[in-house]
């Protein structure tokens, strides 16, 4: 008894920054197909960790191993200090799961669903408060089957939260949502950070990861191909910015000042683009030159590669398609 309590308390009191999930050399093979090829991951206490990857990259396999739903072929996995492969009710009490697909409990209202699930846990959260947290207060008496897709997903999140878990898995929580439902769902997930929860989020939407995640790992073909913050992922912070503009008639790229000319090229569409590692300096040079000649560049656009650009280059089947 004493031993169990001690471990539990250590888990509960884990300080910010301590690893909640730790994975070393995780591999999973289905017959001759190697779905996950020896990956390492570390998720720290209190962060939102996004796990990105195209369909079939090994994303769901990895998550289901971490959730204790699937066995693994090799590697070490520790989630809240326990190997999920032999985790029991004690561990499930501390983990919340939003599955990729799961129907609502048939025949029960939102409130009844939460009452049912609250009864499964040792120290459940307040039911009304949890319903309010996901924005379903007005639907508390409605049968699950009558909810819209977005509302059902919020009920899924409420059910994962009702046990007051330390760690929450969200498997593609907004797939198939319209933009406003996605925004609403993001607010709910962002709210979990305020509650001090650790969130493991899988998604294939870049904007979702960029908006929510503290850190991102990208899996492609069973391997982690990049890891970092949304700003630094895949060396994004060191990538050149693209300065795009259209020159007026009679002015060509070769007329640009000497400092810009070697960096500039003409686009098939007729516009010009300058690849720059020092965008501020180059924009100033461009502006001085244009204003000095008495014209404006009304469609001037300065852009760093989007997370989507980085992601697509990282997960491209042949690799290296990035500009």
């Amino acid at each position: 008894m004493i031993d169990t309590d001690t471990t539990l308390d250590m888990g509960r009191m884990a300080e910010p920054g301590a690893p909640v999930i730790s994975v070393r050399g995780l591999a999973k093979r289905y017959g001759r197909y190697q779905a996950v090829k020896g990956i390492d991951l570390e998720v720290r206490h209190g962060e939102i960790f996004a796990f990105l990857g195209p369909n079939g990259a090994g994303k769901t396999t990895t998550v289901e191993i971490l959730e204790g739903f699937r066995s693994r072929t090799a590697g070490e996995v520790s989630v809240l200090g326990v190997d999920p492969a032999d985790a029991g009710a004690e561990w499930r009490d501390r983990v919340g799961v939003v599955l990729q697909e799961s129907a609502v409990e048939p025949g029960l209202s939102v409130r009844e669903c939460l009452e049912l699930y609250a009864g499964y846990y040792r120290t459940p959260r307040d039911i009304g408060e949890t319903i309010a947290l996901v924005g379903l207060s007005e639907k508390a008496g409605a049968l699950g089957g009558s909810l819209s897709g977005g509302q059902r997903r919020r009920l899924d999140v409420a059910l994962a939260l009702i046990g007051d878990p330390e760690l929450i898995f969200l498997d593609e929580p907004t797939t198939g949502f319209d933009p406003s439902a996605r925004r609403a769902a993001w607010e709910v997930v962002a709210g979990l950070r305020e509650l001090g929860k650790t969130v493991f989020l899988t998604t294939h939407y870049m904007d979702e990861a960029e908006y929510l995640a503290d850190r991102i790992a990208v899996i492609a073909d069973g391997e982690i191909v990049a890891e970092g913050t949304p700003q630094t992922l895949g060396g994004r912070d060191h990538m050149t910015a693209a300065i795009r503009f259209t020159l007026p008639d009679g002015v060509a790229v070769r007329n640009l000042p000497a400092g810009l000319r070697p960096l500039a090229e003409t686009q098939p569409s007729g516009g010009a683009v300058i690849r720059s590692e020092t965008p501020l300096l180059h924009v100033q040079m461009l502006a001085d030159w244009a204003l000095g000649r008495g014209f404006d560049l009304p469609d001037l656009d300065v852009r760093r590669p989007t997370l989507e650009d980085v992601y697509l280059s990282l997960t491209a089947p042949t690799g290296g398609t990035h500009r």
Binding site: R92, D93, V104, Y120, D156, A160
Partner: peptide
Amino acid sequence: VLKRRRATP
């Protein structure tokens, strides 16, 4: 539905 319950204690 059962899988979701499996994720609870």
